[in-house]
Every structure is written in C-alpha cells, then in structure tokens.
Design a binder for these strands. Structure first.
Length: 722
RNA sequence: GCGCGGUUAGCUCAGUUGGUAGAGCAUCUCAUUGACGUUGAGAGGGUCGUAGGUUCAAGUCCUACACCGCGCACCA
C-alpha cells in the first residue's frame, strides 16, 4: 500500500558498508558511478589488461551517425557488442572494442537541411565552405552528446582509440585507397546515367533508392506510322529515334537508319529508325521512342548506335527550353498538359490507366528519382567482388544467421559499378583536379596553372567501407599489426550491402586480408505491433528513456533475450519492466546472502549436498559459455535468468532459510552444515554475478563490490568461471 | 518474375544434431509483509499456417500451397 518504507528493518546490514542493500536497487544513482570506476580503471583499453593471456579479441563498433540521438537500433548493438566484449575480456582476451562516430555524409546533410528549412534558410543560398563549417559544428556537438549516451548504456569501449570518420588519418587512408584503385585502373570518371534526386541535388547509389510499384497511366501515341507507348510523355520532346526489335516482322519494311518526318508534340520532327534487341516485341506495340538522357536503358541503346542524347529536364526537375511552351514547368504539372495537347492533335491513341510500373524514389525524401546523365566517379566492382565471393564461399567469414551468406553472394555476383560521387559538401572531398580534358587524382593541386578542383565528395560508405583497417592505423600502426584482422563485425542486417559487403571487398583489396572472420547481424527493432518505429507514426521508443526509467541493465537484458540474429525484434515497455523486476530479484538475493552469510569462512568444506549444488551451477556455466561462444546470446540470457530466479532464489535460498534459521524459525542444523551453506551461498552468488555481468554489467558490478570474498577487485576484469 | 525470412499459448517470442510442446508478460486460484518498491505455490490456455510425403518417431527433414514481411531484377 504505502510505496515508501518508513523505517528500515532491523538487520545485520543496518550498519557498515552494505547498508545500501536495505534500499531497492537504484540504477540512476549507481550507473554513472560504476561507469566512472570502470573508465578510471583503464580496463577498457586492452593495453592495460596485464593478465590477459589469450591474445587479442577485436570488435570494431559500427560508428553511430553523429547527427542525433541514439535510437533503439543503437541500443541493440551496444547490448550485443558490449556483451561480447565483456565476455571475452573476462575470458582473458585482450579485448578491444573500438568506438567511433560517423559523419554520415548524405544522412547528416539531409538532417541539417531540415534544420535550415525550419529556420527559413537553404543550403543552396550558402557558400559551400560556410555550410560545411556549420555542419561540422553541428556534428561535433552531436558526437559528444552521443558519446555520453553510449556511456549511459554501459559501453565498455576503449575511448582512447575513438575515431571519427573525418579524422585526418582516416581521410589519409581513404585517399590512399582511392589512389590505389585509380592506379590499378579500377576507378573511372565518365558520363553515365545516375539516380538524381531533384530535391537533394545529388546523385545516389542504387542502394540509396527505393523501388516501389506504382499505378501510372500508360499512354499510346501516334508517332508517324507507328504507335508508341510511354509512361513519361514529359520526356518525349526530343525523341527523334524510334526503336524496334530487328526480327519483328510487323516492322520489317522499316530499315535501320531510315528517316521519316513525323508530327510530334511541338510540330514536325525527323525520326530515325533504330533496330535494337533491347526492345521486347511482346511489350506494348513493340515500338518505342527513346530519351537517352533520362533513361538508363535508352542510354545503353544510344551508346550502342552512337546516337545523340539531349537533356530535357533540368536538375531541379523542370522542363528545359526544348519543351517549348511547357518550358519551366515541373514534370508532374506538365504531364497532363502534354497529354491533353497530343489528344487535341489527334495523336493520343488510348490510355491504359491500370498499368503498374516500378518507380525509383529517393530513400530519404521519396522524391521521384530523375535519371540524368552526369560525369561521375565510378569504381569497377567486379574485380573487387571476385575475391570476396571466393572467401565467402570458402566460409572464411561466417555469418549469423547463416542465410545472409546466400543473400550476400547473390548481391556480389550481380554487382554493378559504384557511383561514389555525391554533390554535397558534407563529406570527404574527392581528390581530383581538372584542366580541359585532363584529369588528375591527387590531394594537392598539380603543377601549372588552370587546374580546377573537384567539388564532389565521396559517398559516405566509401570511407565507412574501410573502417576496420582505417581505424587501426593501416598500414604501419601498432594496432593494425596487433588487432587486425578483427574477430567480429556486429551490425544491422539492413546494411549488409551498404557496409558489410564493402568492408569485405575494400578490406581484402587494401590489406589482402578479410577484415573480420565473423559477421553477426541483428534485426530491425520494431514496435510491439510489428510496425517500424517512425516519428510520423509516433511509436518511437527511446532506449535512453527506458534506461532512465528501468535501468540500463533491464533495458539490455530485454534487448538480448528473445532476440535471435537477423529477425526483427520488438521493443516495448512491459518487457523492460519485467527485467527490472529481475534486477530487483538479483539485488535481494544479494541482500539475503549478505545478511546471512556475511561472516562466511571461505575455507569451510562443502557438504555433499552443497557440492552438488555448486556443480549444478558450474554445468550451467559451461553451457552458457558454449552458447556465448556460438553467438546464442538470447538463449544464454534466458538460462541465467531462469537459474537465478527459479533455482537460486526460489529453491536454494528458500531451503537455506531452514538450514541457517530465520528470526521466526530457529536453525537445528549442525555447525558444519551451516558453515558449508554460508560458503555455498557466497560462491553461487559470486559465480552468478560473473555469468550475468556481460548481460547486466552495472548491478552485477555494484553487488560484486560488497562480496565478502571475491577473486578480483572489479567484476569487469574478474576471471570467467570456465 | 526470382530469391530470402516468418507463420508455435491472449501478447512478445524461444525451441541447437527429429525423441510425447517452453519462457516472459497477461488471466484465474490460494498463500505471504518476508531477502523482495513485492513475492511464492499452483491452474487454465496450443490439432506448432494448410495439405501431402520421408521416418519406429516430425514444431524440427522433403514437396506444394496460403498469408505476412523483406530483398533483388524488370521494358517504353
């Protein structure tokens, strides 16, 4: 009834160091204090782990984007990677968990543009250097904020090695890789069809576009003697090539290269017949006109036959003067008017309103992607993918869950060249210079006058893809020699192509070695109803709020248990609340043990019965160790939860009351039985704390500090029981 | 179209190599102020998506289908 206990119960603990156990566990008070103790101990840095005799164990943290608060996905990776790190550290490895922060080029620029928009400003009215500086300030501010949040989540990473993706050493490594790629002929600059976002004014990689099925009217127009089909009448102004399959008998009378005058949108034009196998005779009428500037397929056809390409739509998505009376109109607005005009001219044959096609949209703003021809820097991917495919096929890098191997191999096998140019200021500048037709790849301005510097920056994943070796100081750094290749890459399944694939390829290319031997991919964190968390749906759960409310240990336990690799996992308050009760349980187990066994003689021999109980936990410890080594965290956590609550507390502690006696029931056990039981209780608590530490680091460390006998000052660096 | 994952208790999910279904939360009953800002003992609740097959034995392996989610690729 009364939530506040007025007077503490009389207890042997009411004086002395363990008075804290009279009150419920208070994560808010405990966590910052414990974290500070850890950090001051220096044990986050593997160089200080003197007793570690098992060699290095390296985990490189996926650097969070320094453009906002940590979200649920970050909390998952902290829970898992910190668990791995703490487990390996206790096992005696020189455990290194290397933290970082990502400038997150396009992502951050988008976030910042939204901020500018709210302030009534626009990046297009700003000097690039000023904009860059503003975003830098913004990012660095967020970076330190984010570091505080990682600490709050208990991350035992080595802050002395923290790296930012724009650190000079990283940029140097990135330039080194680009230069090598260039020298090896794997980089080219060329006019290609790019995915242009008219809102963000930059090109995007294939991975940065979403392809969605949409119902778009499919129009049939008279084009001279032909009927052509199109979903994009607004691109058709310059269409002067009419293309059909060479074997299509219906059009056998028209020869490749024939010209004919046709009446078109803004008057008559001269059309040229092109025969190309890219045309599917079964589709539509089997005849189409092409717009090479605004379609990849059309561009390929144009290239094969050496045809002209003309820009129809400008970089902002408006029609150019070639559109005549429609010039300056947005394409969405122009489309209906053009169809109307063609209809009035009697050129509209029919409209299929049920037609569905795949439309590419910007993954950030959902704007319609406008294919445009642009000079961009590309990396040839086939030669980089081949060695990666070989290593993956040989299982030299293994995946949890396994099926990602197949998914990744499929993607690598069908890989396309990678456009690494971005028309944004926030990123690592591409080190290139131009003078007329001359191109130089170099950080410094080449000798002589008239060189113009490239203004594009790299796709952020080009630098992130080099993260494992760049952060370790490739090629000469001590850390690189000691900690590379790393052991585990743990990250979100979502970014397997964006990041994991590129780390494997670039790591192999630059260092000749796989950057890691194990990839563990966690799934998306969703709301309880399975919906993706999003601001617009209002169902976003902040991990830091949950941590604040229920304690970080409860949050972490809730993120580990029931979370199998690769599958989406639901995060909701009740779940975390349940693990807060578990923390409470553990706290009270400690209180019971301290009240009753504080005066334990650690040399007291165990009775047979107690030896069996000790062996039982040891068996569980073996089992849990095996689970952790095999990345079955979810099941290891559950086993420990079950043991501690339902075995240790419900059975062993309850039985101990009869042996030790309570204020109600006097003990009738022999003194050696009592002594044995006291020793046992401390031993079981001690081992439980060790096993639980990687899952619930704060509360276990806090209880450990009060253990009457223990094998190390800090639980964090105590020996793993197996 | 091709591929991947999922479908198990009211909800969220486990279920390692095939051996008579599990956890947490929720519900119900009883007990308890105790180590417990509560907890304990217990109960109810599932024909493991559907239909076949392999096997002495299938939630688990095979085939097909359905539904949900995702990825990849498309042609105007």
């Amino acid at each position: 009834m009364d939530p506040v206990r007025k007077e503490p119960l009389p207890s042997p603990l009411s004086s002395g160091a363990n008075e804290k156990f009279l009150k419920p566990y208070n994560p808010k008070e405990t966590e910052p204090r414990v974290y500070e103790t850890w950090e001051k101990s220096g044990a986050f840095n593997p160089d200080n782990l003197q007793d570690a005799d098992k060699g290095p164990f390296t985990v490189i943290m996926p650097p969070p984007n320094a453009n906002g608060s940590l979200h649920a996905g970050h909390a998952v990776f902290v829970a898992i990677e910190d668990l791995i790190t703490r487990f390996r550290r206790m096992q005696g490895y020189k455990a290194l968990w290397l933290p970082g922060a990502d400038h997150a080029g396009f992502e951050t620029q988008v976030v910042y543009e939204k901020k500018l928009e709210k302030e009534g400003r626009s990046r297009f009215q700003m000097e690039p250097e000023a904009l860059r500086q503003e975003i830098m300030d913004f990012t660095l501010h967020n970076k330190s904020f984010m570091e505080g949040q990682l600490r709050a989540l208990g991350a035992s990473c080595d802050w002395s090695r923290e790296t930012f993706t724009l650190d000079p050493e990283i940029v140097k490594t990135v330039y080194g890789t680009f230069k090598k790629l260039h020298e090896d002929g794997l980089v080219y600059r060329g006019k290609r069809t790019v995915n242009w976002c008219p809102k963000h004014q930059t090109s995007l990689s294939e991975l940065e576009t979403d392809t969605v099925e949409e119902k778009t009217p499919f129009y049939y127009f008279k084009y001279g003697p032909f009927t052509i089909g199109t979903v994009r009448p607004e691109t058709k102004f310059g269409d002067k090539y009419v293309v059909m399959h060479p074997n299509d008998k219906r059009y056998a009378e028209y020869k490749h290269g024939d010209t004919l005058e046709v009446e078109w949108i803004n008057g008559p034009i001269v059309a040229t017949v092109i025969k190309d196998e890219a045309v599917d005779p079964e589709f539509g009428t089997g005849v189409m006109t092409i717009t090479p500037w605004h379609s990849q397929v059309d561009f390929e056809i144009a290239k094969r036959h050496n045809l002209d390409a003309e820009q129809i739509i400008d970089w902002r998505g408006k029609l150019l003067p070639i559109a005549g009376e429609f010039a300056g109109m947005k394409i969405t607005e122009a489309r209906a008017k053009i169809v109307e005009k063609l209809e009035n001219k009697g050129l509209l044959v029919k409209t299929d309103t049920e037609y569905k096609n795949m439309v590419k949209r910007c993954y950030k703003c959902s704007s319609m992607i406008e294919p445009q021809i642009k000079d961009q820097w590309f990396i040839k991917m086939k030669p980089l993918a081949a060695p990666a495919i070989e290593k993956i096929e040989k299982d030299e890098v293994v995946f949890y869950p396994e099926h990602y191997k197949k998914i990744l191999l499929h993607w690598l096998t069908n890989i396309e060249d990678w456009n690494v140019s971005r028309q944004i200021v926030w990123g690592i500048p591409i080190p290139a210079w131009y003078k007329g037709d001359e191109i130089r790849v170099s950080e410094e301005q080449p000798e002589g006058d008239g060189w113009v510097k490239e203004t594009d920056t790299f796709d952020t994943w080009f630098s992130s893809g080099q993260w494992p070796f760049a952060t370790l100081g490739y090629p000469d750094g001590e850390d690189f020699k000691k900690f590379y290749p790393t052991q585990v890459m743990e990250t979100a399944g979502e970014i397997i192509f964006f990041w994991v694939a590129r780390m494997i390829m670039l790591g192999l290319y630059r260092t000749g070695q796989l950057p890691f031997s194990t990839v563990y991919l966690h799934g998306l964190v969703v709301a309880k109803d399975g919906q993706k968390m999003s601001k617009s749906k209002g169902n976003v759960i902040s991990p830091l709020e949950l941590s604040d409310k229920y304690g970080t240990d409860a949050l972490r336990m809730g993120l580990i248990i029931g979370n199998t690799p690769g599958t989406t996992t639901a995060l909701y308050e009740e779940k975390i609340k349940a693990y807060k009760l578990f923390a409470n349980k553990l706290w009270n187990i400690a209180r019971f043990v301290f009240e009753n066994a504080q005066d334990t003689d650690s040399n007291a021999p165990l009775t047979n019965a107690d030896t069996v109980l000790r062996a039982e936990l040891h068996e569980i410890a073996k089992d849990v160790t095996k689970d952790l080594e095999n990345y079955r965290f979810y099941i290891a956590g559950e086993k420990l939860y079950h043991y501690v609550w339902h075995r240790l507390a419900d059975t062993i502690l309850e039985d101990s009351k009869k042996i030790l006696g309570t204020h109600k029931i006097p003990s009738d056990a022999a003194p050696e039985v009592i002594a044995s039981r006291k020793t046992l209780l401390v031993l079981l608590l001690e081992e439980s704390l060790q096993l639980l530490h990687p899952f619930m680091p704060f509360i276990t460390e806090e209880i450990w500090a009060s253990l009457p006998t223990k094998n190390a000052d800090l639980l964090m660096t105590a020996k793993w029981p197996i």
